[in-house]
């Protein structure tokens, strides 16, 4: 279970997160909604240790990780699927997957080979393209690769930052089917999305982040109230 308690993160003088509280339960899909600039990616980076908290604590299964390095956090079992996928364009699909298991590379070669095969079984499209440069894949395939790469670290929780960004509607549906499948095989998912309607299909718990604060938390049923979804896209109307 990932618990974020009163977290404050700043870029210089500007506070991007102003005391965020949320919990991502093990085995569930937790979705964070919010308009552009609300601080969603900042929160992801803070969990992943890329940005440091100024106040508050982040605990994962009881371990305080707000002072850990990004390397240590990956080791603990927290993997990030970054916004815009960020695959390594000039490396092959297979090499991309191997970088995901970087902390284990050189230690258990056969286990990594097995995991690569498991990813190919999960994403057959990647197997067809295993020797191709990742940069030549389509957007949807790159997203699958980014997910597979993160899974190669054998994470206990997967942080996904806007996996639907810039993808065609049919591909978005496919990506969400993958998220659903992953969750059914026991992967805990913390998802950042702007696409609230798609997220409604997969998520168990919702949070809405606006201007660095959580302004709504609830179940999918509670979310379906039109006004909150509207805020997820556009933010609260300010007088």
């Amino acid at each position: 279970m990932l618990t974020i308690d009163n977290v404050v993160t700043s870029y210089g003088m500007i506070k991007a997160l102003k005391g965020v509280n949320l919990t991502a339960e093990s085995g569930k899909v937790t979705c964070l909604l919010g308009p552009n600039g609300a601080g969603k990616t900042t929160l992801m980076f803070t969990i992943a240790g890329i940005l440091k908290t100024q106040e508050g604590s982040i605990t994962f299964d009881g371990t305080e990780l707000s002072r850990f390095s990004p390397v240590k956090i990956v080791e603990l079992g927290i993997s990030l699927v970054p916004e815009n996928r960020l695959v390594f364009p000039m490396m092959t699909v297979r090499e991309n997957l191997e970088t995901g298991a970087y902390l284990r590379v050189g230690k258990d070669k056969s286990a990594i080979a097995d995991d690569v095969e498991a990813m190919f079984a999960r994403f057959p499209r990647l197997e067809e393209r295993s020797t191709q440069m990742a940069g030549t894949l389509s957007g949807g395939e790159q997203q699958m690769l980014a997910i597979g790469r993160a899974l190669m670290a054998r994470p206990r929780i997967l942080l996904m930052d806007e996996p639907s960004l810039g993808l065609a509607p049919l591909i978005v549906e496919e990506i969400f089917r993958i998220i659903e499948d992953l969750n059914q095989t026991g992967v805990t998912i913390f998802l950042v999305e702007q696409n609230a309607r798609m997220a409604l299909r997969v998520a168990d718990q919702f949070y809405l982040l606006e201007q660095g604060k959580i302004t709504f938390s609830g179940t999918p049923g509670e979310l379906e109230e039109e006004e909150v979804i509207h805020r997820a896209y556009l933010g609260s109307r300010r007088e």
């Binding site: 956090i73 990956v74 960020l86 695959v87 000039m90 970088t99 995901g100 790469r149």
Partner: peptide
């Protein structure tokens, strides 16, 4: 070389 940010997310120092 290809993407230092992504490399960091993979746990590369």
């Amino acid at each position: 070389s290809e993407n230092p940010d992504a490399a960091r997310y993979m746990g590369i120092n």
